[in-house]
Protein backbone atom coordinates (compact mmCIF):
# COMPACT_ATOMS: atom_id res chain seq x y z
CA UNK A 1 0.00 0.00 0.00
CA UNK A 2 2.77 2.33 1.05
CA UNK A 3 4.61 1.71 -2.23
CA UNK A 4 1.57 2.70 -4.27
CA UNK A 5 1.36 6.02 -2.44
CA UNK A 6 4.99 6.73 -3.22
CA UNK A 7 4.56 5.77 -6.86
CA UNK A 8 1.52 8.02 -7.13
CA UNK A 9 3.39 10.80 -5.40
CA UNK A 10 6.37 10.50 -7.71
CA UNK A 11 4.09 10.54 -10.74
CA UNK A 12 2.41 13.66 -9.38
CA UNK A 13 5.70 15.37 -8.69
CA UNK A 14 7.04 14.45 -12.13
CA UNK A 15 3.87 15.65 -13.79
CA UNK A 16 3.93 18.93 -11.90
CA UNK A 17 7.48 19.40 -13.10
CA UNK A 18 6.53 18.81 -16.74
CA UNK A 19 3.63 21.22 -16.36
CA UNK A 20 5.87 23.87 -14.88
CA UNK A 21 8.60 23.39 -17.46
CA UNK A 22 6.19 23.91 -20.31
CA UNK A 23 4.21 26.80 -18.87
CA UNK A 24 6.76 28.82 -16.90
CA UNK A 25 8.46 31.61 -18.82
CA UNK A 26 11.10 32.58 -16.31
CA UNK A 27 14.08 30.30 -16.69
CA UNK A 28 14.53 29.99 -12.95
CA UNK A 29 11.03 28.52 -12.72
CA UNK A 30 11.83 26.14 -15.54
CA UNK A 31 14.90 24.98 -13.64
CA UNK A 32 12.89 24.42 -10.51
CA UNK A 33 10.39 22.46 -12.57
CA UNK A 34 13.18 20.28 -13.95
CA UNK A 35 14.39 19.64 -10.43
CA UNK A 36 10.87 18.63 -9.43
CA UNK A 37 10.84 16.14 -12.29
CA UNK A 38 14.18 14.81 -11.10
CA UNK A 39 12.79 14.49 -7.58
CA UNK A 40 9.90 12.46 -8.96
CA UNK A 41 12.22 10.07 -10.75
CA UNK A 42 14.44 9.60 -7.71
CA UNK A 43 11.47 9.00 -5.47
CA UNK A 44 10.23 6.34 -7.85
CA UNK A 45 13.66 4.78 -8.04
CA UNK A 46 13.96 4.49 -4.25
CA UNK A 47 10.42 3.18 -3.95
CA UNK A 48 10.87 0.49 -6.55
CA UNK A 49 14.21 -0.57 -5.11
CA UNK A 50 12.84 -0.42 -1.58
CA UNK A 51 12.39 -4.13 -1.13
CA UNK A 52 9.23 -4.58 0.93
CA UNK A 53 10.57 -7.82 2.29
CA UNK A 54 14.25 -8.42 2.68
CA UNK A 55 17.14 -6.05 2.17
CA UNK A 56 16.78 -3.22 -0.35
CA UNK A 57 18.32 -3.56 -3.79
CA UNK A 58 21.61 -1.60 -3.74
CA UNK A 59 21.58 -0.72 -7.42
CA UNK A 60 18.75 1.87 -7.33
CA UNK A 61 20.49 3.47 -4.34
CA UNK A 62 23.67 3.82 -6.35
CA UNK A 63 21.70 5.15 -9.28
CA UNK A 64 19.92 7.74 -7.17
CA UNK A 65 23.20 8.95 -5.73
CA UNK A 66 24.68 9.36 -9.19
CA UNK A 67 21.51 10.93 -10.45
CA UNK A 68 21.41 13.48 -7.67
CA UNK A 69 25.02 14.43 -8.30
CA UNK A 70 24.26 14.95 -11.97
CA UNK A 71 21.09 16.93 -11.22
CA UNK A 72 22.90 19.20 -8.78
CA UNK A 73 25.76 19.92 -11.12
CA UNK A 74 23.46 20.48 -14.08
CA UNK A 75 21.37 22.87 -12.02
CA UNK A 76 24.42 24.75 -10.80
CA UNK A 77 25.66 25.05 -14.36
CA UNK A 78 22.27 26.22 -15.60
CA UNK A 79 22.09 28.84 -12.86
CA UNK A 80 25.52 30.15 -13.77
CA UNK A 81 24.47 30.39 -17.37
CA UNK A 82 21.24 32.11 -16.40
CA UNK A 83 23.24 34.80 -14.62
CA UNK A 84 25.39 35.29 -17.73
CA UNK A 85 22.32 35.40 -19.93
CA UNK A 86 20.73 38.00 -17.67
CA UNK A 87 23.90 40.09 -17.71
CA UNK A 88 24.11 39.95 -21.50
CA UNK A 89 20.46 40.46 -22.42
CA UNK A 90 18.80 41.93 -19.38
CA UNK A 91 16.13 39.25 -19.38
CA UNK A 92 15.70 35.85 -17.82
CA UNK A 93 13.36 34.39 -20.40
CA UNK A 94 13.91 32.67 -23.73
CA UNK A 95 12.60 34.71 -26.63
CA UNK A 96 12.54 33.40 -30.17
CA UNK A 97 15.41 35.16 -31.84
CA UNK A 98 15.22 36.77 -35.18
CA UNK A 99 17.09 34.45 -37.53
CA UNK A 100 18.84 37.35 -39.09
CA UNK A 101 20.43 38.44 -35.86
CA UNK A 102 24.21 38.43 -35.84
CA UNK A 103 25.30 35.09 -34.37
CA UNK A 104 28.65 34.11 -32.94
CA UNK A 105 30.50 30.93 -33.69
CA UNK A 106 33.42 31.88 -35.83
CA UNK A 107 35.95 30.65 -33.27
Amino acid sequence: MQAEIYVAASAAVFGTGVYGLILARHILRKLLALNLMGGGVFLLLITLGGGADGPPDPIPQAMVLTGIVIAVSATAFALAMLVRLYQETGRATLELEDDDQEGGGDG
Partner: peptide, 10 residues
Protein backbone atom coordinates in the same frame (compact mmCIF):
# COMPACT_ATOMS: atom_id res chain seq x y z
CA UNK B 1 29.44 34.24 -25.83
CA UNK B 2 26.92 36.86 -26.78
CA UNK B 3 23.15 36.83 -26.32
CA UNK B 4 22.39 34.59 -29.29
CA UNK B 5 24.75 31.81 -28.29
CA UNK B 6 23.74 32.05 -24.63
CA UNK B 7 20.03 31.82 -25.40
CA UNK B 8 20.66 28.92 -27.74
CA UNK B 9 22.75 27.16 -25.12
CA UNK B 10 20.09 27.74 -22.48
Amino acid sequence: GGPVALSAAM
